[in-house]
């Protein structure tokens, strides 16, 4: 028979062993991806550990494109950064001011708007795809940056999060700022946002990530390879021109993954906080 502390030790060991095993399943695809992007094409399918490391796929990725022009991949990374960054700034900016007004000001129709924001979150994205596309046609925004980011510039979710957090800031801080001569906008950016660092970061990283990851919408509104964000460009290349070049595909996939992984690494506690706090963004 095992005594109490022995059996406790065993069960703890088993717990760690199980967790570690599971973790291998989670991480294995990443490991495979990075390795595959670094090995000769012939080994991608049936070897895990490469016989030699090569950068040929990355060289290909960065040198593609007609002579003299930048590689479409480089442009795509740039496009992704532009679209994701603009959206992120905009969601934070407008989310903060709208959330502030809803949480701390008084105006006609305030409750209506609050309820409407909750109501908005019930509607599935599928309902908006087609009419927004038609709207982009009407606005002449197909194949433009604004076509890609405009529908996401303000988010009910982000606004709601800011609103919830701003409710907890003591009224006297706002009063003090008003007496100190702050305009309402100043109060938001000099007082509320610095006090809500984690909410701000959470809204920013989740917005950035979802825009970086977005596929369907970009697929719909961009036909011009020069303007495509990386996700669509990679998707189309994988299904088209480079469907028989797995090396390019994995190298592209690695490039698509790494920035978000880096973001994840630097803001890791905010990812967990964001998920546990709100259970947001499925």
């Amino acid at each position: 028979m095992l005594n109490r502390s022995q059996s406790k030790f065993l069960s703890l060991t088993a717990t760690y062993a199980l967790l570690a095993t599971g973790l291998i399943f989670i991480i294995f695809p990443y490991i495979w991806m990075v390795l595959a992007s670094l090995k000769p094409s012939a080994e991608i399918y049936n070897r895990l550990i490469p016989t030699r490391i090569t950068l040929e796929h990355y060289r290909m990725v960065f040198s593609l494109g007609s002579t003299g022009s930048t590689s479409p991949f480089v442009r795509a990374i740039f496009n992704s950064l532009v679209v994701s960054s603009i959206t992120t700034l905009s969601v934070v900016f407008f989310g903060a001011i709208t959330g502030y007004a809803l949480a701390r000001l008084r105006f006609k129709g305030q409750n209506l708007l609050k309820n409407f924001i909750l109501f908005q979150m019930l509607f599935p994205i599928v309902l908006f795809l087609i009419p927004r596309f038609l709207l982009m046609i009407r606005l002449g925004w197909i194949n433009t940056y604004q076509g890609m980011f405009s529908p996401f510039m303000m988010s009910a979710w982000g606004t709601f999060l800011f609103m919830q957090f701003f409710k907890t800031v003591p009224q006297s801080l706002i009063d003090a700022a008003r007496l100190d001569g702050c305009s309402e906008l100043r109060i938001v950016f000099r007082i509320m946002l610095p006090l809500s660092k984690s909410v701000t970061i959470i809204v920013a990283i989740f917005t950035f990530m979802s825009m970086w990851d977005e596929f369907l919408w970009y697929l719909i509104v961009t036909k011009d390879y020069n303007l495509m964000p990386l996700s669509v460009l990679l998707g189309l290349y994988t299904r088209g021109e480079y469907s028989s070049y797995p090396g390019i595909q994995v190298a592209g996939a690695t490039l698509l993954t790494l920035p978000i992984l880096a973001l994840f690494y630097f803001f890791r506690e905010y990812f967990t906080k964001g998920i546990t706090m709100t259970g947001v963004k499925g």
């Binding site: 599971g22 991480i27 990443y30 399918y45 895990l48 990679l234 996939a253 993954t257 978000i260 990812f271």
Partner: peptide, 28 residues
């Protein structure tokens, strides 16, 4: 917990490519 969360941050297109190759008929 962060380790398990790593898969969540992968981009849809990227992990689709990875799994398609990894699980293809003659894949690893």
């Amino acid at each position: 917990s962060l380790g398990y969360l790593m898969s969540y941050v992968s981009a849809g297109v990227a992990y689709s490519i990875v799994f398609r190759l990894l699980f293809s008929g003659d894949g690893l």
